[in-house]
């Protein structure tokens, strides 16, 4: 059983911060992940930067550009996970677009992920139509393929996606890209209840979540809240990134 499967056996809402690997500086990534864990994060979403991230808003896009300028590539990100694993067992999912993974080679990618201790993979531009081989290879390497559902995904398709994913589903909270405003309560309740009724796996929710109140709201309706753009904004604006991130995770968890 991988760390994601173990985590989601436990009841209750989870907090899942996101950070773009190699942003703002190469030597901060492992420190930031460990600070997130120390602050109370339950799982980490680590971004593999891509030149053309079309599901992301301007904030995460800009962080990807900086990371690429810093020289980040897939191999480097996997090395960071290896370093983190020396002192931490927090579940880690990578988030990346399909092209760099395709270029790295599916077989090598999953076998290297397994070796360094990655637990899950999220690919925002790989819908189930194109994901068959990817999902099989992921599962055969004990890595959870975290497939996406959107607010306009029909019920029967939610069932197919959740069956195919098996361990965990990622619900995009809004029609839009990362960093936009969260929908109204009634819209969210309707959408996430529909997912609850049709999904036989746990699901986490991301896009537009910024405050402790947002996290509590989302966790009442799902199994975990992903906070991405807000973390990248904090990093962008801070002179003491590790301290800032530690405090922000605590704030999101409601720890005084």
């Amino acid at each position: 059983m991988n760390r994601i499967q173990q985590l989601f056996k436990k009841p209750g809402g989870k907090l899942i911060p996101y950070v773009t690997a190699g942003y703002p500086l190469l030597n901060l990534t492992t420190k930031l992940v460990l600070a997130m864990e120390k602050g109370g994060a339950d799982m980490i979403e680590l971004g593999l930067p891509f030149s053309d991230p079309l599901a992301d808003g301007p904030v995460i896009q800009a962080s990807s550009q900086v990371a690429l300028k810093n020289g980040v590539n897939t191999q480097w990100v996997l090395e960071q996970v290896e370093i983190i694993r020396k002192s931490s067992q927090i579940p880690i999912a990578l988030m990346g677009y399909i092209n760099p993974i395709l270029k790295y080679g599916y077989n090598k990618f999953f076998s290297d992920c397994r070796q360094v201790g990655v637990d899950g993979i999220i690919v925002p531009d790989l819908p189930i139509e194109e994901a068959k081989d990817f999902v099989l290879l992921s599962k055969s390497n004990n890595i959870s393929p975290i497939l996406l559902v959107a607010p306009n995904t029909p019920n029967d398709r939610i069932r197919t996606i959740s069956q195919m994913a098996g361990d965990l589903v990622y619900c995009v909270a809004i029609l839009g890209v990362t960093g936009e405003k969260l929908s109204k309560e009634a819209t969210l309740v309707k959408y996430l209840s529909r997912v609850r009724e049709n999904s036989n796996t746990p699901f986490i929710v991301g896009f537009g979540i910024k405050t402790h109140q947002d996290v509590e709201r989302i966790n009442r309706l799902s199994d975990g809240a992903v906070v991405g753009t807000a973390f990248v904004e904090k990093l962008r604006d801070s002179n003491h990134p590790v301290k800032t991130i530690l405090e922000y995770v605590k704030e999101l968890k409601g720890i005084k």
Binding site: L54, D125, E129, L148, V172
Partner: peptide, 19 residues
């Protein structure tokens, strides 16, 4: 039917666009 020209083509897009 799925938009493939053998290995080329397809639909590599966010889930939101599939419908």
């Amino acid at each position: 039917e799925k938009g493939h020209f053998e290995i080329f083509g397809g639909q590599y897009v966010p889930e939101t666009l599939i419908p």
